[in-house]
Design a binder for these strands. Structure first.
Lengths: 177, 177
DNA sequence: AATCGTCAATATGATTTTCATAGTTACATA
DNA sequence: TATGTAACTATGAAAATCATATTGACGATT
């Protein structure tokens, strides 16, 4: 599919998938929505290689979906954040969540995140329906609370990742000699 | 990312993107939701090569998202349809539509599809809100009406595709001699 | 009874993308 | 001085995708 074709099509799906139509971009957006914006966190939680992550972040930045911000001047360190355009991908992530929980995840597994209706405090159904307000809650009124099991999974993944980094560094030093 | 990792993660996004986390799969689902189920239509409207399309359809079928049905015994011909699991990807497509229309498509371009609220007949806002019922319409209550301009685009694409097929066939015959 | 057209694919070899693994830079800390 | 940390970049191998051509079963046309 040529760029021309993509730019000129009236189909919004063509345009959307042109920017976020791949696994890594979506997982990066998920992670940024979770509040994790540092390179290593993104790498650990998405499972992308550093060069894949670097390439995707550059593209997402060029497309105005994320922005890079300095969080430390010395040493110079950056983190990534969603722009307004990126934040508005939340409904896409939520739709993938709903489908994944219902149609893909093994039965009986707990939901990774429980969603609540901020205006009334009650827990939302998987499709976003509020049983108290008796209507679909807009995503701007939702608040998520991650399940303990999922937090544990994430913590484990982060630890495993840094351990592997250390091992690799050790190996490098040994072979230096 | 290993299969093990994917199967065992609690994150529904990981599971979803494992099945439909690529451009072609999403465009195929879009096309099937439009009611186009034949191989050549899918190829023409998505722009995928025939072998890419073939590979993706096989995977989508293996994952229970589409099913292949015979629509002609002789000559033997097949078409593809969404299963219930596949139909429930509609909210994902709708979310990509909303985002694409608002954040990606050039300003002023008409929406490819206008959405209506089946229970009251009024046109929905881009985010799915019904101005008459004053609530978000669930996707099961929505009906889409493609814009003329988009239908034209699609028709043109289909014609161009079959023309190219004919040209290729001519070339083959000439070189046969 | 040849030839042509249709549809759902396959085959092939080149090109591009992604991967695993390792290394770099610039600073902080022990 | 050695060690650690964060955000990358480099390289060559492996895998995915591409453009292009071709197949096989049948029906319709000349």
């Amino acid at each position: 599919m040529s760029d021309q074709y993509e730019d000129q099509s009236l189909c919004p799906i063509v345009h959307s998938t042109g920017l976020v139509g791949d696994r890594w971009s979506i997982l990066i957006v998920r992670e940024l929505l979770m509040g994790q914006g540092r390179f290593q966190d993104l790498q650990a939680q998405t499972g992308a290689t550093s060069q894949m992550l670097s390439a995707r972040l550059k593209r997402l930045e060029a497309d105005g979906i994320v922005e890079r911000q300095t969080y430390s001047e010395k040493p110079l360190r950056y983190e990534y954040r969603l722009t307004a355009k990126g934040l508005h991908l939340m409904p896409v992530i939520l739709a993938l969540r709903t489908w994944g929980e219902r149609w893909v995840k093994p039965e009986g597994a707990p939901a990774a995140v429980r969603m609540f209706h901020r205006v009334c405090g009650s827990e939302l159904e998987l499709d976003g329906n509020c049983p108290v307000c008796r209507r679909l809650a807009p995503w701007t009124e939702m608040a998520g609370r991650p399940d303990e099991a999922w937090l544990t999974e994430r913590k484990t993944r982060a630890e495993t990742f840094t351990e592997n980094l250390k091992k690799a560094a050790c190996g490098a030093r040994e072979s230096d000699q």
